[in-house]
Simulated scan of single mutants.
Amino acid sequence: MKNKGEMLIESLLSLVIISLALIPISNTLGKTSKTKNRINIAINKRIKEKNKLEEIKSLNYSEFLRYVRKDKDVTYKKTNTTYSLFTDESIYIIKVGEYEDVYIP
């Protein structure tokens, strides 16, 4: 009869030890998951910004001017340089988020 009581106490003690070890591990896994999710959101945002910048650069001059004037996420600055001596199409510096590039018509 004495052995049965010892086995119960040993089982309860081992469950407490395992539980105490699993709590920090599960907490770390939760924080890691949240951090990974935040990083994925930031990466997707940067990919979208870069894609938007490339899309803007592919527009013709009149479409470009309409697009940048209506889109609030795009900042642009007209340079004093024109694309050709025979046109009045200026070169622009465009910025979407952290990315900056030059639009040449």
Results as ranks from 00 to 15, higher is better:
8 L>E: 11
1 M>W: 08
45 K>I: 04
38 R>M: 06
76 Y>K: 02
69 R>N: 13
96 V>C: 02
20 L>H: 13
44 N>R: 12
33 S>Q: 08
50 K>A: 11
75 T>L: 11
9 I>D: 06
19 S>C: 07
23 I>Q: 07
78 K>I: 10
14 S>T: 14
34 K>H: 05
29 L>Y: 07
71 D>S: 13
16 V>A: 11
95 K>C: 04
20 L>D: 02
97 G>A: 06
70 K>Y: 08
94 I>D: 03
56 I>T: 00
104 I>E: 10
67 Y>F: 13
42 A>H: 14
28 T>E: 14
90 S>W: 09
43 I>Y: 05
4 K>P: 03
26 S>Y: 08
71 D>C: 09
31 K>S: 04
2 K>Y: 09
25 I>K: 04
28 T>P: 04
68 V>C: 01
45 K>M: 06
2 K>F: 07
51 N>T: 13
16 V>G: 10
59 L>S: 00
4 K>S: 13
67 Y>W: 06
64 F>G: 01
60 N>I: 00
62 S>I: 12
88 D>I: 00
102 V>D: 01
63 E>M: 11
40 N>L: 12
19 S>Q: 04
68 V>K: 02
1 M>T: 08
105 P>Q: 01
1 M>V: 11
86 F>I: 11
94 I>H: 02
72 K>G: 02
66 R>H: 10
42 A>S: 15
72 K>S: 14
44 N>L: 11
93 I>D: 11
89 E>L: 02
100 E>I: 09
32 T>F: 10
19 S>M: 14
26 S>E: 05
13 L>Y: 12
38 R>V: 09
47 I>R: 06
82 T>Q: 10
55 E>S: 10
58 S>Q: 10
101 D>E: 13
35 T>K: 15
10 E>Y: 06
61 Y>I: 01
76 Y>P: 06
65 L>V: 01
91 I>Y: 00
91 I>L: 01
26 S>R: 10
46 R>H: 15
82 T>D: 03
39 I>E: 14
14 S>P: 00
103 Y>A: 03
62 S>D: 14
35 T>V: 09
32 T>N: 14
31 K>M: 05
5 G>H: 08
62 S>Y: 07
68 V>H: 01
42 A>L: 12
38 R>H: 05
87 T>P: 00
29 L>F: 10
62 S>W: 04
36 K>N: 11
53 L>D: 01
98 E>R: 07
37 N>W: 03
21 A>R: 05
31 K>E: 09
6 E>R: 11
85 L>R: 07
103 Y>I: 00
22 L>V: 00
42 A>E: 15
93 I>Y: 05
67 Y>Q: 08
54 E>V: 15
20 L>Q: 12
74 V>P: 00
86 F>C: 03
14 S>G: 03
56 I>Y: 05
92 Y>R: 05
39 I>G: 06
61 Y>F: 06
102 V>C: 10
93 I>G: 09
17 I>H: 03
56 I>G: 03
84 S>Y: 01
8 L>R: 14
99 Y>E: 11
19 S>A: 13
48 K>C: 03
64 F>M: 05
37 N>D: 13
62 S>Q: 12
25 I>V: 11
91 I>H: 03
65 L>P: 00
62 S>G: 10
